[in-house]
Write a protein that binds this DNA or RNA. Structure first.
Length: 837
RNA sequence: GCGAGAGUGGCGGAACUGGUAGACGCACUGGACUUAGAAUCCAGCGGUUCAUCCGUGGGGGUUCAAUUCCCCCCUCUCGCACCA
């Protein structure tokens, strides 16, 4: 190895080999130390690490390494979210099996992560596509089925024609597939659902537990997505009862406006439509309307420019309070899968109903009267949705509408016509996927017994490794007799296996728990390990998972807790969440099509892993997006060169000491005192920025200042013992503070400093308050709040002395000449402000 | 429309509890070293009419003092949105 040039690649490979050989970051739950579980969202093994991964994992690695140095027993695992569509596409392209492509990518990406020197406990590595992993998911599925948390339902589903599979509601973004941006179609299919709505209330309420630990906007997004609204269910009796159906129920958040109802609107998909129009002379027109609306795709249907349209069904209901006849309409704006698929129309107090009523000449009845401004239905140009007093509302007349909400609901309940209730926007999670590369759903279809769950002792149901993916992307499983042919677990007769696989978001909903006992074979989790490690103390990943993954994982945690797999007091999986920003290039997201990709491997070859890590952390605070800058990484590289050179230039004066080890007795001159003070100041600031605030950019800036100070100090400092100790201590602090960010160069210099132990076992240095004290301080002098000068005064100077010094100052005198001094504000150690006019 | 966040030099960003706005880095400029360049080191670097005045998206307010607190407005980013 060369003696004085900084050769990052040599150094980094040397230390990485050592870490690997000694399993340096392995941990166990059998420990007396306090635990810290640091987790970054695991990657999909697409083939190569990209800059977004580097940023994500560099942030996590700093957190993990800092916590270790603070004495925590740190769990910092890594694995692979290995099921998914790209593997199938690649398999088609290369005429191979998705497993082969996936495992090759994992090997490649593991090597890339190791080349970045991340401190993972590799002995816990998992890949979700391995039967040892997904067999437990199949077991959860069976337990969910027993508990009614899994059910089968036929309903219109989101179908992506390009991916040949259904999608969950969360995976449809603006009517497009989250993965390939194809237009999502609606298709009637029988699918498996996870009853996430059973946990709707808990998922919403427990967001309060995450307050402070999770970004506000993620909490807001989840609240929004769960979408709980309070209101009432109100039943309207059908004028002509249908077989087994006498009433139509609506959900409303405004029961106080019930006396203003002038029509009811049903979704075109409402199950009763065909019965309602039976015998109506214009039934065919209604059928044509329904057909037209149903044929619209989701994007068109949900567009906000879509005109409100409706049609009368010929049927009527009776108002629960007045007994009035209310016409039943169908409307294209009514959602079949929200509430009851039916709404009451109150044109005077709901803008959408108002527009509908004006269009179809339906009556507008004012029942809420705003203070001092009575409404005239004929003159209204828009609905009045504000507060007021109830009028034309029978027994409720004169009541403030805010009270009326509950009063009406109580009366409805007493009369058997409704009740106060809530509605969620959240829907159950469709987990069926018509794809090959996923965990098989462990049920069979038997002609005799119907749908039968697989026996637990038959798990795992493994994916065949001899499958050949169809050219058009459809799953080969339905055509594979070897897979589908099976015996019924109930009657022993011939049966067919389910060929749908589970949504890959199921695997990522519990992987964090599997890491706590990743090699366990006789069960999914070791309860002692779960109790020790869970919850994850710090979770780090992209904000794009704010709803999908983070909501599903929270749901799984609660469901597995209730099934006894998780400790009963484990409420939430992730105590703290950091959503890191994206790495952009030229202002936009890096992508192949834009050709603006910066490959981490090229940067590592050119500058070394330490420099790449340093730049990713220095460029911006972690939550913010940052634009990759070629000259910026040059700057990061320059800084590490500077640290290296400082060490080499001064090698002869270094002693093998720790950070903050010099004492006041070592200080024999001003330069040494200033340097020692700067060292302690840096340890204080960088330490707080790294462990408390997660502001790595300012922590690095502080260390840069210390290094600059050392460059300036070195010429003025001598070779005597005291100066050497002060200078060496500062160097040791630089290396210790920087080691979580740039571990390789720091370990190397630490070793060259003469230490035999590793820096990762070094305790975090502790700054000394007395070292921060100064003899003199600079005080700002203000006149009327404006800075007019500064003076250096003894640190202990009292208020009177400060005021006197300020009045003596020439600049102050110039700015107060001819004025009367009214007041003098003295903030010791900071400033003197003279108020004069 | 609702919700969340942001707006500071040429650029990325700093200022944590109201107390010297612009730390640190990039870019740029000058100097040293060098035959020259690169690298390195040192210094400068918001604007200005330069002992002045202006300046943290705009306007008001509180205060001795506001990037920071309060009110109103503008712009941008993200999420949700015919959810009854």
């Amino acid at each position: 190895m060369s003696q004085d040039r900084y050769t990052p690649n040599e150094i980094e490979l040397k230390w990485q080999a050592r870490w690997q050989a000694s399993n340096a970051f392995a941990c166990s739950h059998e420990s007396d130390k306090p635990k810290y579980y640091c987790l970054e969202m695991f990657p999909y093994p697409s083939g190569n690490i990209h800059m977004g991964h580097v940023r994500n994992y560099s942030i996590g690695d700093v957190v993990a390494r800092v916590k270790r140095m603070h004495g925590y027993n740190v769990l910092h695992p890594m694995g692979w979210d290995a099921f998914g569509l790209p593997a199938e596409n690649a398999a088609i392209k290369h005429k191979t099996h998705p497993a082969k492509w996936t495992y090759a990518n994992i090997d490649n990406m593991r090597a890339q992560l190791q080349r970045l020197g991340y401190s993972y406990d590799w002995s816990r590595e998992t890949a979700t596509c391995r039967p040892e992993y997904y067999r437990w998911e199949q077991e959860f599925f069976l337990r969910f089925l027993e508990k009614g948390l899994v059910y089968r339902k036929k309903a219109p589903q989101n179908w992506c024609p390009s991916c040949h599979t259904v999608l969950a509601n969360e995976q449809v973004i603006d009517g497009l597939c989250w993965r390939c941006d194809s237009r999502v179609e609606q298709k009637d299919l029988t699918q498996w659902f996870l009853r996430i709505t059973a946990y709707g209330d808990e998922l919403l309420e427990d967001l309060a537990r995450l307050e402070g630990g999770w970004p506000e906007r993620v909490l807001a997004m989840q609240r929004n997505w769960i979408g709980k609204s309070h209101g009432a269910a109100i039943a309207f009796t059908l004028e002509k009862p249908l077989p087994g159906k006498e009433r139509i129920e609506v959900f409303t958040t405004r029961p106080d406006t019930v006396f203003g109802v002038s029509f009811l609107t049903l979704a075109p998909e409402h199950e009763l439509v065909e019965h309602l129009i039976d015998g109506y002379e214009k039934a065919d027109e209604v059928r044509a309307f329904v057909a037209r609306i149903r044929n619209m795709d989701r994007l068109e249907r949900q567009s906000d420019v879509l005109e409100k349209e409706g049609i009368f069904t010929g049927a009527y209901v009776r108002h629960p309070f007045t007994g009035e006849r209310v016409p039943l309409w169908l409307g294209n704006f009514v959602l079949a899968d929200y509430g009851t698929g039916a709404v009451m129309g109150v044109p005077a107090h709901d803008q959408r109903d108002f527009e509908f009523a004006r269009k179809y000449a339906l009556p507008v009845k004012v029942v809420i009267s705003p203070k001092d401004a009575p409404l005239d239905p004929a003159a209204m140009t828009e609905a009045y949705a504000g507060e007021g007093v109830m009028i034309h509302s029978g027994e409720f007349d004169g009541m403030p509408n805010t009270e009326g909400k509950q009063a009406v609901a109580r009366k409805l309940e007493a009369d058997g016509n409704g009740r106060a209730t809530t509605q969620f926007r959240l829907r159950d999670w469709n987990i069926s996927r018509q794809r090959f590369w996923g965990a098989p759903i462990p049920v069979v279809y038997c002609d005799a017994c119907g749908v039968v769950p697989e026996k637990r002792e038959n798990l795992p149901i493994t994916l065949p490794l001899d499958a050949q993916i169809n050219e058009d992307g459809r799953s080969p499983l339905p055509q594979m007799d070897s897979f589908t042919r099976c015996t019924c677990p109930q009657c022993g007769g011939p049966a067919r296996r389910e060929t749908d696989t589970m949504d890959t978001f199921v695997e990522s909903s519990w992987y964090f728990a599997r890491y706590t006992s990743a090699r366990k074979e006789d069960g999914p989790f070791d309860m002692d390990a779960l109790r020790y490690w869970m919850p994850v103390d710090q979770y780090i990943g992209g904000v794009e998972h704010a709803i999908l993954h983070l909501l599903y994982a929270r749901f799984f945690t609660k469901a597995l807790r209730d099934l006894g797999y998780f400790p009963p007091d484990l409420e939430e999986p992730f105590s703290r969440l950091l959503t890191q920003g994206m790495v952009l290039k030229d202002g936009s997201k890096m992508s192949k099509s834009k050709g603006n990709i910066v490959a981490p491997s090229e940067m590592i070859d050119k500058y070394g892993a330490d420099t790449v890590r340093l730049f990713c952390l220095f460029a911006a605070p972690p939550e913010r997006d940052f634009d990759w800058s070629d000259s910026g990484i040059e700057g990061a590289s320059r800084f590490l060169q500077r640290v290296w050179r400082l060490f080499m230039d001064e090698e002869s004066r270094f002693l093998p000491v720790r950070g903050c080890s010099s004492t006041a007795a070592d200080v024999q001159n001003d330069t040494a005192r200033d340097l020692r003070r700067r060292e302690h100041l840096t340890v204080k600031k960088a330490g707080e920025d790294m462990s408390r605030r997660f502001q790595f950019n300012t922590a690095i800036a502080a260390v840069m200042e210390l290094v600059n100070a050392m460059y300036l100090a070195r010429e003025k400092m001598g070779q005597d013992e005291g100066d050497r100790r002060v200078f060496s201590s500062a160097m040791a602090s630089v290396l210790t503070l920087l080691s979580p960010i740039t571990p390789h160069i720091c370990e190397e210099l630490w070793e060259r400093l003469g230490h035999t132990s590793s820096l990762q076992d070094e305790p975090w240095p502790v700054w000394d308050e007395t070292a921060l004290q100064q003899d003199s301080v600079t005080i700002a002098l203000q006149v009327n709040g404006k800075l007019r000068g500064t003076i250096d005064v003894p640190a202990q100077a009292d208020k009177a002395a400060l005021e006197a010094a300020a009045r003596d100052d020439a600049a102050v005198q110039r700015h107060t000449a001819g004025l009367t001094i009214r007041k003098v504000i003295v903030v010791p150690g900071k400033l003197v402000n003279i108020v004069a006019n």
